[in-house]
Structures are given as C-alpha cells and as structure tokens.
Design a protein around this nucleic acid. Structure first.
Length: 561
RNA sequence: GCGCCUGUAGCUCAGCGGAUAGAGCAGCUGCCUUCUAAGCAGCCGGCCGCAGGUUCGAUCCCUGCCAGGCGCGCCA
C-alpha cells in the first residue's frame, strides 16, 4: 500500500503538470520546460495541507508576475478526490486543502498496516552494506564505538524499512603492529604477575584490562609456556588476547542490540594473497612508483593531496593497501552501495580511500562514508577524561550499564552524525523531562494505558478500531496528530535516502509532544461512545507510529512505565 | 601550512532554497477528585560567526575571511 501522503503528492504533481499543459495549449502560458514539481508541507496550517512553489519557479521564464502564473494554473486545475480546496497565496504559492476524510484514511492505513506502517519502496531493488564500529581488537569498545554502533544499526534498520536489502558487517583489524603490540603488552604483564621486573613496551597498552587478560591467560596457560622463546610467548598471548577481546566486543554489541551478518577478518585478505594481488594490479595499471625503497600509490592523480605508501621499505603492506583490498572485495560482492561508518580520527582518510578505489578501477561513488564524530563525555556538566593509551576511558559496556540501551541509543541518534556530541551521563540516567527518550516512550505507554482501560469495553482490537465512525474527529489537535501520523512514511524514507537517522528522533519527539498536549487537553474515553471509538483509533495510530519509529532506532516501546 | 567537521536563544542542538527560524535544558508563573504529572499551558530569551555573490526568495547553495574541534606516519 502506497503511503497516503506520498500518493496524494504524486497525484497533485500529475494534475499540476496537466494544468500547465492545458494553459499552454490555450496560449495563456508560454511554452517552457517544467522540471520536477516541488510539493511541500507548509509549516503554518493556514497555508494549506500541501503547497507548491510552481508559479514562483515558472514566473521568470514566463515573464509574468508569480501570482498571475499561479492564478492561470489554478484556473486550469480541476482538483479531484483528496483535494477539497485550492487557493493562491503569498508571493505566488498555490495551497491545497484536504477534507477531514483524508485524515481518517491516514489513521485507517496506520492501523491496518500495524508494524509495517511506514514501509516504503524508495530503496527497493538496492543491496546496501553497512560496515560499522570495526574497532581495533586491542581493547574494550569505547563511547565513540557506541555512537557508531547506534548510528550503523539504526541506519541499517531504516534502509531495510525503505525497501533495501541490507547487510551489517564488522571488519576485524587483526593484522599488523597494533595486535602484535597487544601481544607484547599481555606477555609483559604475565611476566610482571610472575614477579619479574619488566620493561613494559613503550607504546604498549596500559589499560587495566591488559592485567585481566594476563591473569585469565595464566589461569589456563599451556604447561610449557615459560619454556618457549619470547617471540612465541608473545604470539600465544596475542592470539589468546585477540580471541578474548573479540568475543567480548561481540557480546557487548549483542547486549547493545546489534548483530552482524558477517565478521570479516583482515588476516584472511593477507592469507588468501588478495592483498598482494591488489598491489600487482595497481602496479600493472601504472599507478605505483618506488621512492626511498617504498612502493607508493599515485593517489594525487585521483584527487588526493599527497601520494600514499602501499608497501613499506621492508616490504610490508600498509593499512591502506589492505583496506583497498577490503573495499574492492566488498564491491565485488555486488552491493549497489557500501556505507562505512568511521570514527573522527579517520575523517581525513575519505579522500585517499576514494582516490585509491578510483585508481583500482572501481567506482568511488559506490562507497559512502559517514563520520561518527567525537563524543565529549560529561558527568554533572564536567568532562570525563578519556585516553585509551593511558587506560583511563569509559567503555561501551560501562555506558550501557549506567544509562541503559534505550537512553544511550536515543541520545546518540538525537544529533546528526557529524556534529560533535556532548553526552552528559547524569542527564541520560535522569528519569525526568530532561531525558528525551522517556518523553517519547511515555507517549507510547500512555496510549497503552488507555487501551487497557478501554479493553473492558471491547473497542481495542485493531479490526474494531479500523471501523471507527467518520466525521467525529475535527479538533485542530486531532487534525494535527493525524497529519503527523500521515507524514511518518515520508520521514522514514527521507532518513533512509539521506542516511540520517536523527530525523526520526526529532520527528518522534514532535509527535510525542503533540500527543501529550492532546492527552492533557481532551479525554479519549468520553461518554460519547462513537467519539471515544474515533479517538481510540487516532491514538492507536499514534501508538503504532511511535512504536515503528522507535523500532527503527533500536529503542524499545514499553507498554507501561 | 593543507584537508575534513562544526559555528543558530544563557547551555545542548533541530531546521528538504520558501510564507512569522524551532525544541529541550536553565530562569519565572500556573495546572493532579477524571484514560500514567517521566505530562501540560504560559512568560522570558535570536545582527542564524562576519563580508560578498547566485536567486523572485538564503540559516540552507557558492567564494573569501574569523573562531573551535579533529586529522595530516613507510601506525591502525
């Protein structure tokens, strides 16, 4: 079922185009090219339910004042079914008004579709992969990972709701110096726990979790461990720590409500020879040169501001080379789009990655990168210090333990991804109006409460609500609520097209606000049985919309609070 | 120096090129015998960083400045 609002807009576009054509036919408007006709929802209800700037756009080419153009178009317009009235207004807008029956239809569609209400087909036929979090497996996930997690998971839900086939992927950077440093750090702590005085690796990981790993390892260390040479001990420790950390990251993400379709190991790319093959093909394409013993990729030919090393002077592949291989692998898997969510420390890498893909002959336009910007963690308005190397930081796990999944996810999705975010822990736990997530959930729970109250009277089944009497709803607040419900599919579709989950949080807060105001002002379960029936249908439609919206954010919709 | 992100109410931030720029918090004033007060109503609060440009129309697009953050390794 096509969403009502989108359906009505499409119809209007068609009728406007025909009206312009007729006016041109009759010689009342000059022949001119009409592009995509914009239909918007005016902020002010007095300006209609829908409006178009068509006359303003055409005025210059038509060499006529905009209002005149608007009047000519309106004169040719024979509005059908959903349109009650048409007017010209302001500098030359054409405004359209719907009858109350349009809103009743919007309510019926929401109830009829239930959990599917808001689904669209705007991304139908597209395969999209979202890769997010992908933290180095050298320690616990932090708050930026938590933000990226909320963002990626919500985006994946939103894309799927808009008709795309979506896959979630986690890239494991289990190759290279970072993980071997982890091995050294754990091995050093093992010796330390054994009573040796050790020189800790200078760049090693200082966090307390490294001691924990060392203790866990020693509890089950192979009998001959200490007889092995240091390099072997480091390797054994590295593999142990890697497995433990990955398992913990996966568990933390799952309890945060995130599951992946695929965990992709960087090692596999090296082992399979894929990394070398990619290097060979870049070299064969003539984009590689040698300097100071290293092999460089000429990314400047593709828009980068400097060239990048692919193979170091001692022959090791760089992170970039492996990352090119990884992205080529993803593209070769046939996704129409691959969306990466990177941390703030990687935002400078977008251009070089796209340049490198172009050098490899791939279409860089198929890669979209979203940056999950930094999170300033506050408590009581004062900054909480975070430094991974010093080992003092707040983990995703600690955050979720303190504020809960719903508050954490909603809070992260309140802002656009690229804005720097202040996250005040003391606000996120507050059970008060300072905390927006409860505001929205409370609206849902309040409807549930009304439904429980009405259950005795046998009016709460959706099939029954669907048959609510026409003509009973007419209050401005009721029209407003119905309009907001009707707008949901389009909001969800826009969130998908623009990759902006935060549109949903804003929408939901507005919808919840309109509901709370209505709830305080008007009683749903009135003496008038038919009126109560119609109002129940309205608030049920609101409840379904809120539940579906929260679900897209990965936030629960409680029946009571 | 170069690149990316951000400058909107006291604070944190929304705002698809449209009509009178919004919300929450903070401050002030009211509302619980009625479906949940985690709520509602009202007041206070704005050179939309600055200057040009494009446009019928700019908070939004372009250019240049200014300010803040981050990145700029043959680490990841």
């Amino acid at each position: 079922m096509e969403p009502l609002l989108l359906e009505s807009k499409a119809l209007l576009r068609k009728e406007l185009r025909e009206a312009v054509a007729r006016a041109q036919e009759a010689g009342r408007l000059p022949r001119l090219f009409v592009e995509e006709i914009e239909i918007e929802t005016p902020k002010d209800r007095a300006h209609g339910d829908l409006a178009t700037n068509l006359a303003l756009v055409l005025a210059k080419a038509a060499k006529m004042p905009p209002r005149k153009v608007a009047e000519i178009i309106v004169a040719e317009l024979t509005p059908t079914e959903p349109i009650l009235r048409v007017e010209t207004a302001g500098p030359g807008f054409i405004n359209f008004f719907f009858p109350p029956s349009w809103r009743e239809e919007a309510i019926r569609r929401a109830i009829a579709q239930g959990a599917d209400y808001g689904r669209t087909a705007v991304l139908a036929g597209q395969r999209i992969q979202v890769e997010f979090v992908s933290a180095n497996p050298v320690g616990p996930l932090n708050v930026v990972n938590a933000r990226a997690g909320a963002l990626g998971d919500s985006l994946a839900r939103i894309l799927a709701f808009a008709g795309a086939v979506v896959e979630r992927e986690y890239y494991i950077n289990d190759h290279g110096v970072q993980v071997s440093l982890l091995g050294r750090s754990v091995e050093a702590r093992c010796r330390e726990l054994r009573g040796e005085t050790v020189v800790f690796p200078p760049e090693g990981y200082q966090g307390a979790y490294v001691y924990d790993l060392a203790r866990e390892f020693l509890a089950e260390a192979p009998a001959d461990f200490w007889t092995r040479p240091e390099e072997e001990r480091v390797e054994i420790c590295r593999e142990f720590a890697l497995a433990r950390i990955l398992a913990r990251q996966r568990a933390d993400l799952e309890s945060y409500g995130i599951r992946y379709d695929r965990w992709f190991s960087e090692r596999d790319l090296h082992r399979s020879g894929e990394v070398q093959r990619v290097f060979q093909s870049l070299a064969a394409a003539g984009h590689v040169y040698e300097e100071d013993g290293a092999k460089w990729l000429r990314t400047t030919s593709f828009g980068d501001d400097k060239n990048r090393v692919l193979l170091t002077a001692d022959g090791r592949p760089t992170y970039l080379l492996a990352d090119i291989a990884y992205h080529l692998d993803k593209l070769a898997r046939g996704y129409d789009r691959i969306i990466d969510i990177w941390g703030p420390d990687h935002h400078g890498h977008v251009i070089r990655m796209k340049a490198a893909l172009a050098a490899a002959g791939a279409d860089p336009g198929r890669l979209e990168v979203l940056i999950a910007q930094q999170v300033n963690l506050l408590r009581e308005g004062r900054p909480v210090k975070m430094s991974k190397r010093a080992g003092e930081f707040v983990t995703l796990r600690e955050l979720v333990d303190e504020v809960g999944n719903d508050a954490a996810r909603f809070y992260f999705l309140l802002r656009s991804a690229e804005s720097h975010l202040d996250f005040d822990l003391s606000l996120a736990v507050a059970c008060s109006n300072e905390n927006p997530v409860y505001y929205v959930q409370y609206a849902h729970a309040r409807v549930a409460s009304i439904m429980r109250q009405a259950a005795a009277e046998g009016m709460t089944e959706d099939a029954t609500l669907l048959r609510f009497p026409a003509g009973k709803l007419g209050l401005p607040e009721e029209m407003d609520l119905a309009d907001r419900v009707a707008a949901f599919p389009e909001v969800a579709a826009m969130a998908a097209l623009w990759r902006e989950p935060h549109r949903l949080t804003g929408y939901l807060m507005d919808l919840a606000g309109a509901f709370h105001a209505y709830y305080n002002q008007h009683r749903v379960l009135t003496e008038d049985r038919t009126l109560a029936h119609a109002r129940l249908a309205l608030v049920r439609a609101v409840q379904i919309t809120i539940a579906n919206g929260l679900n897209l954010l990965g936030v629960s919709a409680p029946e009571r609070m």
